[in-house]
Design a protein around this nucleic acid. Sequence first.
DNA 1: TTGTACGCGTTATCAA
DNA 2: TTGATAACGCGTACAA
Lengths: 347, 347
Amino acid sequence: MEPFPRSGYAGGQIMRKPTIQDVARQAGVGVGTVSRVLNNHVAVKGATRETVLKAIADLDYTPNPHARRIAGGKSYTISVLLPVLTTEFYVRLLDGLETAFQEARYDVAIFPLLDRSRLERYLGSHTLAYQADGLVMATYNLTKMFHERRLRTQQPTVLVDAYADSVDSSFMDNVAGGRMAGEYAVTLPGALYAVWVETELDQLFTTRVFEDRRNGFLGALQAAGRAVAAEYTSSFDSLTARNTACTVLDQAQAAGLPCTVFASADMLAGALLDEVRLRGLQIGTDVRVIGFDDQPWAESRGLTTLHQPVESMGYEAAQLLLTRLNGYKGPARARRFEPRLVVRGSA
Amino acid sequence: MEPFPRSGYAGGQIMRKPTIQDVARQAGVGVGTVSRVLNNHVAVKGATRETVLKAIADLDYTPNPHARRIAGGKSYTISVLLPVLTTEFYVRLLDGLETAFQEARYDVAIFPLLDRSRLERYLGSHTLAYQADGLVMATYNLTKMFHERRLRTQQPTVLVDAYADSVDSSFMDNVAGGRMAGEYAVTLPGALYAVWVETELDQLFTTRVFEDRRNGFLGALQAAGRAVAAEYTSSFDSLTARNTACTVLDQAQAAGLPCTVFASADMLAGALLDEVRLRGLQIGTDVRVIGFDDQPWAESRGLTTLHQPVESMGYEAAQLLLTRLNGYKGPARARRFEPRLVVRGSA
DNA sequence: TTGTACGCGTTATCAA
DNA sequence: TTGATAACGCGTACAA
């Protein structure tokens, strides 16, 4: 261990993190006053506030979040619980969340939900995740867990990309997205096919995203007096996607082109584009493809798809949580975001 | 606010998180003894330990990490700083890390490095990331930042999937991986091509992974008196990968088949397989492809590739950090993992 | 408007 | 081997 001087400086360098005591001493005030400045209390004279702020800047002081938490206050920390982050979607979501929280001077820590046991571990105990001032939970449909009180969220919680009636939520209207796809699809010539993403088996840990898209799509078709020629289900990996694409096109070719395929995720749509090209068919005439997500590559591949305001959704989720942290006690609020159909060459 | 009873129970339910005081009272011992049990101190009589553990279980007590941090300097929290997690690689890496840390009863929080400014934000201040007991930093080559003292890691740090001489590290020997690919490639008929992944422009924030693979590969070719017919660079997105695949095959077909292509990431290899198939060529005879990563889909697509023991690498990184946290003060250690060539149909 | 003193839940020290 | 008690850094009554 290196020497650990209890006081101030050594060779111009602070050897130990300055505390509120150091700031108080430096500014010639009491610790209470420094604390009041830190927490934007009204009862501080302007001149005093300036002195304290200067001392804080001089010492490069930052409050210790753990001590804040212990003292009964807040730790200025938010936990974000996300499914495994292998898509662009979560990167954008995080961007929106972090932007909003940073503006409010909150730190955010991410806890990846690699599997279900982790949810319970994160929430069931002493973990940091649970000790945060607020919780953001993404994508999973936790309604049942709330109802069954298996999720006892002592601290303010907001759902993003998911909905439950008992907590604040900020989400995409996937039903509307599916409907938009459907309403556009029925204007195109030929038979209609759809590819869905398989949701997890575990009921409590599942997402309704793709179910909603399906309901919206089928609803729009029904309203137009149409129906799908066939539906398929794929899981969210590239190999299965490619196999599914083959199956879809086999059947579509057998039944006769042209046709339109609604792929409920761009990744599936991409596999379809590949397979169409592979078979020497014309995208946009023989086979039309509508995706969902508007991934970064969608534009350059000319994919017609539903664009989601993901960053805004994250930003708004953060705002909902921040109002709770600032004392809002009203009923659960739901912020619904609508996707936008982006028509490109593929349909 | 609901009533907030200071003591024990209400209707069989604990209204407030039990503290070490509650446990001590319940077990009929002092708080010091409880603390000793919690921290596995030797000087606790077996019978006393049992009593305390029972009280802990009865009350469903878990220590408050913030209080621990304040009192003892340890919070039992590890920060993991990762590049954006859009690949399977980081999921597996996290799995290895979390497994090891959980065994040692540490919590881990993830801080995604969406961009460079976040690195400085995470480390420069009061943030949770910085307040953790230890730091795991993945992939990026931060050597220069350490040398320039732009990264002042007060707490133990370990690099994973990266190397710097001043800190502990656990990493893949990508040079060896490249060499293995090269040594195998030279046994195959036809011209040799290689596709690399573009590294970021920012010097301080770059990774050496692909540079290493290249050096290994070219070294093996040189040792065999061979050379690549051409090299290509692609960025890590599917669109560029597909374009690059086209370019490679255009040139390879013009120069004459068969040929072998070393793609320094499975994602690039996958694009090549697609394009080969698209052109009606035979994979494994006309065009042989060697990948790198052994992604989950590699087996079913028959991709010859380099398998990386990613989980082990993460697990070992965690172990290195844990020894530091337990007081190890020795010089920086480097744990090198070797990839393994998995020969399948593609080459 | 400001300073003092207490409490938060834990670890560490010291005496028993 | 154990129990009391002093820190740890901060928020906040309460007194001034």
